[in-house]
Design a protein around this nucleic acid. Sequence first.
DNA 1: TAAAAATTGTCAAGCGCTTGACAATTCATC
DNA 2: GATGAATTGTCAAGCGCTTGACAATTTTTA
Lengths: 329, 329
Amino acid sequence: MATLNDVAAVAGVSPTTVSRVINNYGSLSEKTKTKVFAAMRELNYAPNNLARSLSGKKTQLVGLIFPSVSNPFFGELVATLENTLFAAGYKTILCNSANNADKERAYLRMLAANQVDGIITSTHNLGITEYQKIALPIVAFDRNLAPTIPIVSSDNYQGGRIAAEALVSQGCRHIVMLVSSAETPEPTNDRQRAYADVLQQHHLTPQVTPLGFTTDVSVKRLTIRTLLQDDPTIDGVFCSDDLTALLVLEEAEQLGRKVPADLKIIGYDGTPFMQAYHPELATIQQPFNALGQLLIATLTACIDGRPPKVLAPLPVQLRPGRTLTLDWA
Amino acid sequence: MATLNDVAAVAGVSPTTVSRVINNYGSLSEKTKTKVFAAMRELNYAPNNLARSLSGKKTQLVGLIFPSVSNPFFGELVATLENTLFAAGYKTILCNSANNADKERAYLRMLAANQVDGIITSTHNLGITEYQKIALPIVAFDRNLAPTIPIVSSDNYQGGRIAAEALVSQGCRHIVMLVSSAETPEPTNDRQRAYADVLQQHHLTPQVTPLGFTTDVSVKRLTIRTLLQDDPTIDGVFCSDDLTALLVLEEAEQLGRKVPADLKIIGYDGTPFMQAYHPELATIQQPFNALGQLLIATLTACIDGRPPKVLAPLPVQLRPGRTLTLDWA
DNA sequence: TAAAAATTGTCAAGCGCTTGACAATTCATC
DNA sequence: GATGAATTGTCAAGCGCTTGACAATTTTTA
C-alpha cells in the first residue's frame, strides 16, 4: 500500500502538502493540487483511515444493531439506512443481535473499540445502565433504551387504533390480536394498548395471543391453526407484523375460512417488499423512508453535538387489501 | 475513553504489562492478569482498535458487497455471513452496491482505505482490471470477477437441469424461462444454458424472457401478465429466482390459470424465508448455510495466506410444492 | 543460600497521518 | 524592483498501541 510519503515523492512535493490536499486546508495552488491528485491516481493511493482517525479525524463509522437482516422488515430498513449513511459519507458496521443479550453486549464493546461515531439500534436486551455507560451517540428505533437516548418511531398507538377500528367498522365482533410478546415496555406495545382501548370502546373483548420470539415458523403456524380451529367465532385478526398476518392468511384459507368474508386480517409494517409481493394483505403502513431519514438525521445531529429535538412519532397509514377491504356500503 | 496507560495506572503496573495481558504474550503471573482485568473492567476499557491495527494487528474487518439486503435472498445470506464472521472474530462492513458501478468502485476504495482484511462480493459491474488492482483477499459469490478470484457457488447448471426436467417430466410442452438478463458471463447463466439443453434434448423450443434489473415490481408484473395472456399455450415457467416465481403465480391465478393443472411454476433459490412463508412454491434449493460457511472458510483461508483449493459448486436440490408436484402416476 | 528461571519494568521506535509553528520561496502588484 | 500576499517546505509532536531489547526484581529450585 502506498503511503502519503510515497505520493509526496511521486508528486515532487512535501508530505505536508499532500496532507493539505487531502484535507483541503491551508493555501494551495491549482497546479500542485493537480500534481498531487495525479500522483494519487498513479499509485492508486487511498489514505489510511486508521491513521487518519487515530490522529483526530472521525472514523465516519456507524454501527447498526438490529435483530437480523434475514427478516425482510429489518433487511429493508437496514438497506435504506446504509444507503443514506453512504450518501452522507458514513460506513456501516452491521450487527445482527439475534435478540441475544450477550451478543448485543459484545457488539457494543466492539463498536466502541472500533471508535464508531454513532450507533443505531433496534434491539433491547441489556439493562439501561449498560446503555448509559456507552459514551457514544445512540439513536433507538422503536425502543426505550434509556431516558437520554432519543427514540425514532412511527405512531404505534395510532396504528393500533386504525387497525382495530377498521376491523370493527367492517363488522368484526371477535377480534384477536397476535403479538410476539404480550408485555414489553417498548413503544410497539402501544399498538396493543390501542387495540384494547378501541375494542373496549365498542364493548368488545380484547384477546391478545403471544406467539413468542421463536424463529421457527412451524411453531407459529401451529399456534395460529389451533387458535382458529378452536374458536370458529373469531372473525378478525390483527397481527403486529405482516409476516405473521401472512401465516394467518395461509392457515385460515387452508382451514377453509373465507377471507375476508368469514375472517378479516390486518397486518402491520407495510414494507415495500410486502406492498410488491403481497398487495392482498391489508396492513398498517409505516413511513419507511421517513423513518430511515429521521434516524440518520437524528444520529448525525447527535454526532455533531446538535441537540436532538424531541421527536414526534411519524404518522402511519392504513393500506387496505383483499384481507380487509373498506366498504362503507 | 480510557487508554492503556490509564489501565496501567489503576492496576499499578506498567503499560507494557497491560499490553502483554491484552495480547497474551511474554510471561505473566495470574495475579497481575487479575489485577489488570479488574482495572479494565473498572474503567470499562476497550483497546482502541485503530491504534492496534495501525501498529500491525489485523483489523478483523470484512467488507460485504451485495446488491441490497432489501432483497430477502441477500438479506438472509448476509445475515448468515455476518453471524459466521462474528463467531470467527470478524466485524462486517455492509455495502449495498445497488448494481451501480460507481458505488461499487467507491466501496472498494473505502474498504481498502479502512484496511479491511478481506472482501466478499456478489456484484460485478467493474472491469476485471479494477478487481485485480485490489491487493486484498476477495471471494466472489456466483460471479466471475477475475481469473485469480475464487468463486463460491452452487451448481447452477445442475439446478437448471433439474428444474427443466421436472417441468418436462410433468408434461409441460411449452416452457418459458424468466431471467433478469439474458446474456451475462456469470455462473448463474448456467441455469439458462441447462434449461436450453434439456428442452432441446426433448425436442422442445426454449424461450427465454428477460425481465431486466428493475426493482419496480409493477413493470415485471406487467411483462409477466402480458406474456401469459398473449400465449395461452404456455404450460410451464421456470424463474431464475423465487420472487419472480411468486409474481408469476399471483398473475397466473388472477388470469384464471389453474396452477398446477394448466400451468406449472418452479423458482430458484429456496431460501429459509421462502420455505417458511411460501412452501407452495416449487423451487431449486441452494444449500444456504453451506454456501455461507464455504464463503467464510474460503475468505479466511485467503486472509491467512492458505491457498484456496479449487472450489467445486455445491449441490442443489429440488423442492416440490403445489406449483409443481412430482407425480409419477 | 546461591544460581537459574520467571516476572515485571524501562525505554524507544514505529504504524501513517494531522496539525501547528515558522521559515523559505514564489507570485502579483504598484 | 520593493512590498506584501500566497504558496510550499521543514520540523516535530502526538494519536494509542505493539514489540523488541535489556535491566531490575521476585520467585523457584537444587
